[in-house]
Design a protein around this nucleic acid. Structure first.
Length: 304
RNA sequence: CGCGGGAUAGAGCAGUUGGCAGCUCGCCAGGCCCAUAACCUGGAGGUCGCCGGUUCGAGUCCGGCUCCCGCAA
């Protein structure tokens, strides 16, 4: 059995951990994840998803604030490390600790969309195809040689959430066999074509603010890409209006970007280049999500 | 005790200085029409989140409680 140390934090990492734990070829000797963080309206300390999963399998778990703490803690004789959505960059000394280094699962077809938000980036950019990449970790972010990939189409109905779940499943299915192949020497790494690399940035809630000068198509893709996180929103009467779903509507150049109007009884907004989108589902501050038509009903500030 | 919004008909909202509880949509019945999510007429549907207080009288004022949500982290 191969002795593995698993680094991961988010929901995306959980199926990967489970796949390795349930595979008799591997022995997960330790799990490293981010420390518990305050979450929710009253800032309750909450463990990350991977910690919960590790507890279900009673795996030794470490939550170092600084990776240097791991120096003397990790079990010896590690064959390989696996990193999936851990949230920190691993320093060189750590990468060299396991005999065969570290393997990473990334939610894009590298070298496209290196960085922390590949799923969002692929949908927002209008990519029709994406996938997961299993690669060897090297010193640069998402830069190492590729062991395997698996692809999927991006549907018009895909959201950040649906694609996230699909890719997580694909990665978890792909990882065990590729990892075994790598460790037994059957699967060799292929250097990335670095000239084709593209990059995505880390997202915050601020990034969810809709730029109405973009076209309806761009905005529609953003709303889907950022659902459920970080979400999309706009300002209305000094308050934030979450926008959960939009539909592209017929062009109408008489409305300028950001201009609100009513189309077939539905709230609609002008976008860039004469395009328009209908707000299908919205959520005002302090309210539950509601349809655009419902939102219009009791609302006097929409059309002036 | 991090900041803030909210709870009124099935849904979304209004309710002014306390004085018979309203609007839009939906629903039911009927009408108009080639037809309709359009239009017209009529109708059903509410312990105003819960408990207590002030008052001749509380959706409205006071105190407490429960639940929902936005921000922040």
């Amino acid at each position: 059995m191969h002795r593995i140390v698993f680094f991961g934090t988010s929901d995306f990492a959980v199926p990967h951990l489970e796949a390795l734990v349930q595979d008799s070829r591997f022995h997960v000797v330790a799990v490293v994840t981010q420390p518990d963080k305050p979450v929710g309206r009253h800032a309750e300390l909450t463990p990350p998803p991977v910690k919960r999963a590790a507890e279900r399998y009673t795996l030794p778990t470490f939550q170092p604030e600084k990776l240097s703490e791991l120096n003397s803690i990790l079990p010896p004789d590690l064959d390989v490390g696996v990193v999936v959505s851990y949230g920190k960059i691993l320093p060189p000394w750590l990468l060299e600790l396991p005999a065969r280094g570290f393997v990473n699962v990334h939610a894009s077809l590298l070298p496209r969309w290196r960085g922390p938000s590949p799923i969002h980036a692929a949908i927002a950019a209008g990519d029709t195809h994406t996938g997961v990449t299993v690669m060897k970790l090297d010193e640069a972010m998402d830069h190492g040689p590729i062991l395997a990939t698996d692809g999927t189409s991006i549907l018009d109905t895909d959201t950040g959430g649906s694609l996230h779940d699909r890719l997580a499943g694909m990665g978890a299915t792909l990882l065990p066999n590729i990892l075994d192949g790598y460790l037994s020497g059957k699967t060799g790494p292929t250097t990335q074509d670095h000239t084709k690399a593209t990059y995505c940035k880390i997202l915050t809630r601020e990034n969810g603010k809709i730029d109405w000068f973009k076209t309806a198509h761009e905005i529609e893709r953003q709303v889907r890409a950022y659902d459920p996180w970080p979400g999309s929103w706009t300002e209305l009467s000094g308050k934030r209006l979450k926008i959960l779903a939009v539909k592209i509507r017929p062009n109408n150049a008489s409305f300028s970007p950001g201009q609100r109007f009513v189309w077939k009884k539905r709230p609609t907004v002008g976008c860039g280049q004469g395009t328009t989108v209908e707000l299908v589902t919205v959520q005002p501050e302090g309210k539950k999500p509601m349809s655009g038509e419902e939102f219009i009903r009791g609302n006097k500030t929409w059309s002036e």
